[in-house]
Amino acid sequence: MDVLREELDLTGTKYGCGEGSCRACTVLVDGRPVASCQLAIAKVQGKEVTTIEGLAAGDKLHAVQEAFVAENAMQCGYCTPGMVLTAVALLRTNPKPTRAQIVEWMNGNLCRCNNYSNILRAIERAAELTQEAPAK
């Protein structure tokens, strides 16, 4: 995480606890969500790491990002990068999750503004968006 934030200046990856309890620092490693605060740099050699900055294609937001905006799924937005990336990984493995499956998958991500209801709705909306226009 320090490498991302300090050396590469990718500050979209957030510190929230440093011990794997909040998932604000989530990045995708080969598409899987990982808490970057628990990740040694050696472990990701030769792997593809996606941070929040790399999710949108230029100005075109990813469906999950679009849905978060549409559903107002943030208050302070500090947990948002981690939420978005975790949700992206969910929809890649399970494009049509039930509400219970979303809750189960997302339970590691904390939002202290407690905007959980909107985030759930946003993920459901993103699933619908992705159905309509399958991701490349």
Binding site: R5, D9, L10, T11, G12, T13, K14, Y15, T51, I52, E53, L55, A56, L61, Q65, F68, V69, A70, N72, M74, G77, Y78, T80, P81, V84
Partner: peptide, 20 residues
């Protein structure tokens, strides 16, 4: 909707802990 939503979902917004 929130006026700064795009900056937040893309990770572009610099929070106090992101200032360099």
């Amino acid at each position: 909707g929130k006026v700064a939503a795009i900056e937040l979902v893309t990770g572009k917004h610099r929070f106090p802990s992101d200032i360099k």
